[in-house]
Design a protein around this nucleic acid. Structure first.
Length: 190
DNA sequence: CTAATGATGAACT
DNA sequence: GTTCATCATTAGG
């Protein structure tokens, strides 16, 4: 299978969020590939009050201002991590939040990391999938198309895409920037 | 320096 | 549906 190349990420976050659905996110842990199909994403644009980048670049969100194809990982609520794929041009702060995966490779490792046997609870949330794949703040600003540790594989999906409002934010709540594969059982609800 | 606040999840009632 | 665990970042003094 083929790793998505640099060119794939050079587009705005709302487009990339859609294009990432069905692709396969992989983290190599102890030489084993752990990962799954991306089934739910949210786009965060520069001109977007809900985005970390809205008020300009800071030390925390600077990865969002890299060119498309890098990772942006941050800690939220003290002990949760969220994984984003940076999109667009350099010096423009936008990214795509990966909200949920469908477990695919080395599900046993995910079960260990998450301390649950229920596959529907492994990766159906932005912080859950970080736990399952063992993604943490050390994975911030990684180049996803030039890494053999954290990367995304090409994959075809014919599933229908549903577009809704985003989840868990207080500003910009009416913007239709959340995308997920319709009828997929691994999408986080709410 | 201090204080408010999350792009959440788990365990409750 | 509600509560709370728990902290880096940020804005403000």
């Amino acid at each position: 299978m083929k790793i998505l190349d640099r060119n794939f990420f050079q587009k705005s976050a709302d487009i990339l969020a859609r294009d990432l659905l069905g692709k396969i996110l992989i983290h190599k842990i102890d030489n084993k590939l752990v990962g799954g199909i991306i089934v739910e994403t949210e786009a965060y644009l520069q001109d977007d009050p809900a985005s970390h980048s809205f008020k300009g670049q800071t030390n925390r969100n600077k990865a969002m201002f890299l060119e498309g194809g890098f990772s942006y990982v941050y800690k939220i609520y003290g002990f949760h991590f969220c994984f984003n794929v940076v999109s667009g041009e350099k010096n423009v702060g936008e990214a795509v939040l990966i909200r949920s995966l469908e477990p695919l490779y080395n599900i046993d490792i995910m079960k260990m990391n998450r301390k649950t046997e229920n596959i529907y609870h492994l990766t159906n949330g932005p912080s859950k999938l970080c736990q399952a794949l063992n993604i943490n703040i050390n994975h911030n600003s990684i180049c996803l198309y030039n890494s053999n540790v954290l990367f995304i594989l090409e994959n075809k999906s014919t599933d229908e895409i549903t577009i809704t409002k985003r989840i868990g934010i207080s500003k910009g709540i009416d913007l239709p920037l959340r995308f997920y594969l319709r009828n997929n059982k691994f999408v986080s609800k709410k």
